[in-house]
């Protein structure tokens, strides 16, 4: 319930005679708009970017365009199929199927990694959640497709986007984090796990 003391009664300012004539204020406003008009016309100061011909310069660091799946130094998919991104995703657009990793520096790898770009809201939460910086958003934004299926990107497509954009925006943090170095591995894990190494 709204209490009396919660209410602020606003008293509007009283207008002087000149203000109630409106004209001085109107002329002031007209001057402002005329200055803008003159600047746009004469000094050609337009804010518009003529899109297909011109393109805005984007901030590579944080522009959130289409996703990519990074490769590590050996060219393998960097993802460790931890499902953090799929969990963090508010739009539920990431679908991962994990399998045992064929490589010995990690346990799992994504056998399937599908990302529905039509459901995605480009919030960047997957990028934030990823522990190994495998999924990243690129400044590439003109994504088109002729069907809904085309807009669901699989692992290969996401990796190919990495290949296209790696020069422009290298992988942020190429080292796989969270896993111990090979040398002190035995101190932490059981020995049978170490056999694979």
């Amino acid at each position: 319930m709204i209490r009396d003391e919660d209410i602020l009664e606003l008293e509007e300012p009283k207008l002087s005679a000149a203000e109630r004539l409106y004209l001085p204020q109107i002329l002031g406003g007209m001057q402002t708009t005329m200055v803008h008009l003159g600047k746009t016309l004469l000094a050609n100061k337009k804010m518009t970017v003529q899109y297909p011909e011109e393109k805005r310069t984007l901030r590579l660091e944080n522009y959130r365009g289409i996703h990519r799946l990074n490769r590590d130094e050996k060219g393998r998919v960097a993802c460790v199929a931890c499902f953090m991104c799929a969990t963090a995703c508010p739009a539920h657009c990431i679908h991962i199927e994990a399998e045992e990793s064929p490589w010995d520096d990690r346990e799992k790898y994504p056998a399937k990694f599908d990302l529905d770009e039509l459901r995605c809201i480009f919030c960047g939460m997957c990028e934030e959640a990823c522990p190994v910086d495998a999924i990243e958003l690129t400044p590439h934004y003109d994504v088109v497709g002729r069907s809904r299926d085309e807009m669901i990107l699989d692992k290969e497509e996401l990796l190919s986007i990495y290949d296209k954009t790696a020069d422009v925006k290298p992988r942020k943090n190429p080292r796989i984090t969270g896993y111990p170095e090979v040398g002190n591995r035995s101190e932490q894990g059981p020995s049978d796990e170490g056999e694979g190494l």
């Binding site: 602020l8 009664e9 606003l10 008293e11 509007e12 300012p13 009283k14 207008l15 002087s16 005679a17 109630r20 004539l21």
Partner: peptide, 25 residues
């Protein structure tokens, strides 16, 4: 116009006064 200064909204005089609990500027 200057002699008859009026509120912008013309708050009816029949409403209770805002004295003491009004936010001015």
């Amino acid at each position: 116009a200057g002699l008859s200064r009026r509120d912008v909204t013309g708050r009816p005089a029949s409403l209770p006064s805002l004295e003491g609990r009004s936010l001015t500027h």
